[in-house]
Design a protein around this nucleic acid. Sequence first.
DNA 1: GTCTATATCAAGATAGAC
DNA 2: GTCTATCTTGATATAGAC
Lengths: 185, 185
Amino acid sequence: MARHSDNTRESIIDAAEQVVIEAGASNLTFEAVASKAGISRGGLLHHFPDKASLLKAMLDRFKKHIDESRTKMKMRNETSTGPEREAVVYVKTCLAEDIGKYKYVTAAILASGAHSPELLDTARSRYRQTLVDLTRDGLSFERAAVITLATQGLRLMEVLSVSPFNDGERRKIVKELLSLAELIQ
Amino acid sequence: MARHSDNTRESIIDAAEQVVIEAGASNLTFEAVASKAGISRGGLLHHFPDKASLLKAMLDRFKKHIDESRTKMKMRNETSTGPEREAVVYVKTCLAEDIGKYKYVTAAILASGAHSPELLDTARSRYRQTLVDLTRDGLSFERAAVITLATQGLRLMEVLSVSPFNDGERRKIVKELLSLAELIQ
DNA sequence: GTCTATATCAAGATAGAC
DNA sequence: GTCTATCTTGATATAGAC
């Protein structure tokens, strides 16, 4: 169903993610992306006429991935017996160990946040919606806020490469957040 | 006791903070800082030969401010009756409402993190030390981690302008974190 | 210690050929 | 839809006069 141009678009986004992973968010340039994608700058600019449009495409694909992960996780859990809270799904999808490359996408968005602040507006409203979902699911505002803040805190620290935690400590933290999510206070 | 050159240095750092506050981290350029400080680029470069040295000076002054705030707060609390935990001091100093301009210093450091990754090493080790201090003070690792992660999460979201909380909600959150800090689990 | 002038470089973006 | 070539801008950094 995908037209050829869609494939090119996707492969450009793949290349952009690769650049950020390998060279860092500050090296996400048209030159680097075009080179990685095997096309010229001119060809790249036909698909993404400016940098904001490329960043937006990267962010959109990231959001799509997260939303699909949540949908899948909720569907799996509808057949299980235990209560599966919104907060559990939230923590699990945000801190999934296979989130890999998307970590760097976030870094790229943040690094250019000053140039394209409208991209951050989306993040803010999605976060607000998360709080609504969690409190509607039975958590107090304070509990929901602490869980989501700690989750985003760990995610941001990892994105910014300032997390001091090793794998074992990280697992302990995720476990603690999940137990906070499962207990109705 | 301060030589004249020290005063110039300080006034340049003042100017750099002002630039970030007024124009954003991505506009922290030599041109803008020199202009704000009322000197030429050449004069500025005599004191800070490259951008990393300016960023380091900004970060050092921020760390000094935080350390002094904590020392003062601990001294005040030595005469009070209630237990004053490390974690309480940590939350209060990190989320103090008068942290004002230093919020933007953090944004500047993060925005140029890719250019000067060694600045982030300092942040990571300071964070690690905080965890040691908190657990030595009686908190479990999990509790200490959740408190510091939520604290840094809120701080980072505010620095990156993606926090969705209003003042009242923020106060509720700080209160919740302080109560988590005061209870030994 | 501060200045002007300039070198250097890389980025985003445009124009037009194929 | 992809290419080459070029424009413009803005940033770091250097050199040397005052």
